[in-house]
Design a protein around this nucleic acid. Structure first.
Lengths: 115, 115
DNA sequence: TGGTTATAGAACCAGGAGGTTATAAATGCC
DNA sequence: GGCATTTATAACCTCCTGGTTCTATAACCA
């Protein structure tokens, strides 16, 4: 019931080409051919990647003559980050537990003198 | 050259069953049958999901008799979060731009009295 | 009008993902 | 040893993904 949007977002982020496209777009708008240039793949392949990013809401496109400039949309990235952030507490707790364990071991080591 | 680990992490996170498994594991260790119980799918299907999570480094497993208890490994989640965090600046910038735009509109509205 | 550039679409292909059922392997219980 | 429980493996199916090439659409240029 939750997360069909997260499905699309994480799936879109799972491809290195698409992450590179997003990284490029973080520097500003770009056209399809500009985005396609650095990659060793055909233009339709890049257009497909852009369609995936667009359907995930990560990219939106304008119209400028025959160009279709793409720009980054940050909202889904925020949602994904928010989902991951729910695990921050767990991480913190884990590291706390680890710290506590290390403290115990250190204390035991000092007291018992083993090793 | 970048991101083959991120590939696996984001791909693993792209499935709602696997995200639910991670959410369950954030509450503590669990066996395969415990993890499989809430889902309307076969046990081998859940084992496959666990293998995906394990290969992505998101889950590690111990051995307790015939049980193979699973526990959450937070590191890849941190790495994914770190990647997303690189876009924070962009978001901030975007919202700054949005704020600036809203300010402009508000100022124009106050001055021109439109609406 | 005709030619070039920018992008999308269609058809196709190989491989992987996510599911199934049936079966095997390992461990615990009498 | 014999049986139940837990988990993994194998074989199979269907659908999606990521790529290709070829072609169509649309806008600019002259």
């Amino acid at each position: 019931m939750p997360g069909t949007d997260l499905d699309a977002t994480f799936a879109a982020l799972a491809d290195p080409t698409r992450r590179a496209i997003l990284a490029r777009l973080a520097a500003g708008e770009a056209t399809v051919t500009e985005l396609a240039a650095p990659f060793a793949m055909s233009q339709p392949a890049v257009s497909k990647h852009l369609r995936v990013l667009e359907r995930a809401g990560l990219v939106s496109r304008g119209r400028d003559g025959q160009r279709r400039p793409c720009r980054l949309e940050a909202r889904p990235l925020r949602d994904a980050t928010a989902w991951l952030a729910d695990y921050r507490d767990y991480w913190a707790e884990s590291y706390q537990r680890l710290d506590a364990l290390l403290d115990e071991l250190r204390a035991a080591g000092d007291a018992g003198g083993s090793r």
